[in-house]
Amino acid sequence: MTDDPAHAHHRAHVLDFFTPRAADWDSRFPDDGPAYAAAAGLLGLRPGDAVLDAGCGTGRALPALRAVVGPRGTVLGADLTPAMLEAAVRAGRDAGGTLLLRADVSRLPLREGALDAVFGAGLISHLARPGADLAELARVVRPGGMLALFHPIGRAALAARQGRVITDDDLRAEPRLRALLAGSGWRLDSYTDEDDRFLALAVRRP
């Protein structure tokens, strides 16, 4: 399958944005680790489960996900940007059998229903086609499995950091996100938007 021009342009934009930032990404956000660990712990994962960190970047969530599913579990990290995956390896986040994949979340090399959960940190704002891409994540998760859309700070704090104002058409605004998830195979189960955390948890519908 080949990309349509708009999708190809989006992929190029993502690579152009993240590649030069990969080397110092972790040092820019040194205090986020506990927030990632707390979010990973809310996915309802059990030892032996299979989980994907979609758009894993430098893999900051991967150790926390590995700790939850244990040595017999499956932890995958997928990202479009090779430099981000290389930074994850340098940080040792492929330890314990964690597998890193260069993959576009719009076309994951996974069978239907293969996973128990998907974790996505800062993911939704970088999706080319949010509805279709969330449906692809739903495809690879079993019915009843979980999706966590996470950011270590809330919408207002992130907007202030970026020098912008949040609006109702933000994909992460609760009514907009609830409808988007409902149209792509998910049911929004809980929604938290506080200064120190954004976390939307959704359940894969049958």
Rank of each mutant, 00 (worst) to 15 (best):
D168F: 03
A138Q: 04
L181M: 15
R102L: 11
I124D: 01
L177P: 00
R102S: 00
V105R: 06
L177R: 09
A138D: 03
V105E: 09
G185R: 02
A179H: 13
G163D: 08
R172D: 10
S190H: 02
P152D: 12
R155Q: 15
V141Q: 04
R129N: 08
P109K: 13
P130M: 03
D189C: 01
R107H: 15
A114I: 13
E136C: 05
A128S: 13
H151D: 13
L110Q: 03
A156F: 01
A103K: 05
D94T: 06
G154Y: 04
L181Y: 08
I166H: 09
A159I: 11
G122R: 02
R142L: 06
S106T: 02
A95N: 04
I166Y: 01
R107A: 15
A135Y: 09
A159N: 08
E136F: 07
D116F: 05
R129K: 11
L101E: 02
S106I: 00
R164V: 11
L108C: 11
A179F: 04
R161K: 03
A128C: 11
G120A: 13
V165Q: 14
L127S: 02
L177S: 12
I153Q: 14
G145M: 05
G122P: 10
L99A: 15
G154L: 10
G183D: 12
D168I: 02
G120F: 01
Y191R: 12
D168E: 15
D170I: 13
F150R: 01
L110C: 12
R102D: 01
I153H: 04
R178L: 07
E174R: 15
